[in-house]
Design a protein around this nucleic acid. Structure first.
Length: 243
DNA sequence: GCGACAG
DNA sequence: ATCTTGTCGC
């Protein structure tokens, strides 16, 4: 019954040591493909998750949402949700193991096959270059972009205050060399930047361009906003009961 | 020992 | 992420 659709990790599996999880992330990073995605697809998927205490089990309930946005109108044309109860605790650098399973389940319920997925978190702007967006992209072999509200790793120069301004996120490797893993992007004048990085089958420049196109009015992409709204509503619907 | 630290 | 009211501003 509770089969997990995630080829990455089963949320019900026994606790795995951080070292082993890091190995998995390095393996995923190996599969990430960085290449331009010149055209923004007409339909873009947004995913996000919300959490709440589980009144019955005493643990935590996670609700994941996947929405399909028509970029010609920014309307939601399709949506799906999924929930699970046993997930790992949040640890910086390991978000994907907690969040990806329920997101993949929600995505699997969509009728259409995603052409591009925008995730609420990092892509390769990650200690092992395998953030949430990479996990999702590699698992489905679909282009993904990570658009996070906060920085995890990497440094950047001061970003000018107008929409469209950006600075590359530079990550210093263990060998001392520096690599661009993403960008701090201003999607609204005088408003805090978002942190954009490729998840899979996109590159930094096209990721930035697409996030800007998807966030014409607010700080966050419409995909993220719609998914956030949906998973919160769905979570509320799952409250007061369990199983 | 003291910070930093996606959601 | 989640806990939480009012409040300043367009």
């Amino acid at each position: 019954m509770s089969h997990c659709l995630s080829p990455i990790i089963d949320p019900t599996m026994p606790i795995m040591p951080d070292e082993q999880l890091s190995d998995l992330q390095r393996a995923i990073a190996t599969k990430v493909v960085l290449q331009p995605l010149e055209q923004l697809p007409r339909f873009v998927v947004g995913v996000d998750a919300a959490y709440a205490p589980d009144r019955v089990g005493g643990g935590t309930v996670a609700c994941g949402a996947a929405v399909v946005i028509d970029t010609s109108s920014f309307e939601v044309v399709e949506q799906a949700t999924a929930t699970n109860h046993k997930m790992l605790d949040y640890q910086p650098g390991f978000l994907a193991f907690r969040e990806a399973p329920v997101l993949l389940e929600a995505i699997a319920k969509l009728r259409r096959r995603p052409e591009l997925i925008v995730c609420d978190g990092q892509g390769i702007a990650h200690p092992a270059k395998a953030g949430l967006a990479c996990h999702v992209g590699v698992a489905l072999d679909v282009p993904t972009i990570g658009c996070a509200k906060n920085r995890l790793v990497g440094e950047h120069e001061t970003v000018d205050q107008n929409r469209g301004d950006s600075q590359s996120l530079q990550l210093t490797e263990t060998d001392g060399t520096s690599t661009s893993v993403g960008a701090a992007v201003r999607t609204r004048d005088h408003v805090k930047c978002v942190f954009v990085s490729p998840g899979h089958m996109v590159d930094v420049p096209t990721s930035v361009a697409h996030v800007l196109a998807l966030a014409p009015q607010f700080r966050l992409p419409e995909t993220t906003r719609a998914a956030d709204q949906l998973c919160r509503a769905a979570l509320a619907g799952h409250e007061g009961r369990s199983k």
